[in-house]
Amino acid sequence: MRVLQLIDSLNAGGAERMAVNYANALTSRLEGAYLCATREEGLLKESLSENVGYLFLNRKKTIDLSAIKRLSTFVKQEHIDVIHAHATSFFLATLIKILNPKLILVWHDHYGNSEFLENRPLFVLRRCSAWFSHIFTVNSKLEAWARTKLPSVPVSYLPNFAQVDTNKPKTGLKGTKGKRILCLANLRPQKDHLNLLKAFQLVLEKYSDWTLHLLGKDFKDDYASEIKGYINKNHLNKNVFLYGSCTDINHVLKQGDIGVLGSKSEGLPLALLEYGLAGLPVVATQVGDCYKVVSKPNEGILVEPNNHKDLSQAILKYIEHENLRHLAATHLKAKVLSDFSETAVIESLISIYNSHKL
């Protein structure tokens, strides 16, 4: 079997990282594993295994006839059996399916605003879904939504899994060793960095030598400007640092002491799994499927979203009780390795691929 992962870009986001993870994991399990970035390349290209067949389309518009032709030709030449379309790439995948009727098309829903599904556009997706053989979702809310809104397509919840990257270490974190809080999240509104910054200000009132490190893509938009403006206005520049996207995530996480996510909405955040694999204790908001990763008090701390006071108290608890930090990190790492392992997820994935073979 030959499977193509389809994703709009290789920027360092959750859906993009999972597309790369799937492609890499399938190289040793299938006849052929491929990945196509349709609109942009990015830092994650460095993380692709050399055994993954790669195509960049440089698609410029929604209906780009040249890009459609190139992808359809690639699918035929490489004898692709399955297109695994991630996030918004489902539209292009549907066009390729129409041109190549024997293809199996599966769609992977990574929608990050799963707390606000009532606002989600549905018109195009519903029409494209007539060509889907299967839908995968990254959390239970998206699974329930798909079963209701797209009832004609089989749906499976498929948890994210993390891989330890082997990229060359190059990012050195500022601040004092042993006193670093990390947030691995692109600068998007649903990640609610402002809530985290407010919480961190309260932390600094007691522990002025701790630092906060924000790692994730800067989209140079109004939200990013608001974050930077808040940091400047509140004189946080000596304690809060922004790094943009990093390819050496494992190296970066090894330099931290507490991993945090203060999001308004999530699917199943890959960052939590990566924190766990790296041996970090975590503080996160109780959104999406975070509760499935941190399901017990000894695996981390979950707080309600939009509550910077509770978030600060949770962070302070770990700062003040190093033994609890180490205990939580140990339990979370064991949980991630047992419940969110690459092996279990990929076996389920291949089984579903095979169930739809013509």
Rank of each mutant, 00 (worst) to 15 (best):
Q5N: 12
Q286A: 10
G42W: 02
N139F: 11
E115Y: 04
I301H: 03
Q255T: 04
N307Q: 12
L194I: 15
S152N: 14
N307S: 12
C183S: 14
R180I: 05
K76N: 13
A284I: 00
L327S: 12
R29V: 08
V303I: 13
L99R: 13
Y223F: 12
Y353P: 09
H213P: 03
L215H: 01
V155H: 13
K238H: 11
V345T: 15
N186T: 04
A87R: 09
P305V: 13
L272N: 06
S348Y: 08
I135K: 14
N354S: 12
S9V: 01
P154Y: 11
K149W: 05
T166A: 10
R120D: 02
V336M: 07
K102D: 15
N167V: 11
I301Y: 07
N232V: 00
K292R: 12
A19P: 05
A130D: 09
V345M: 15
S338C: 12
L311T: 00
G267A: 14
L187N: 00
L173R: 08
L214C: 02
A344E: 15
K60R: 15
A19I: 06
P159F: 10
L327T: 11
I104T: 15
E342A: 10
N306V: 00
T94R: 10
L253Q: 11
R120Q: 11
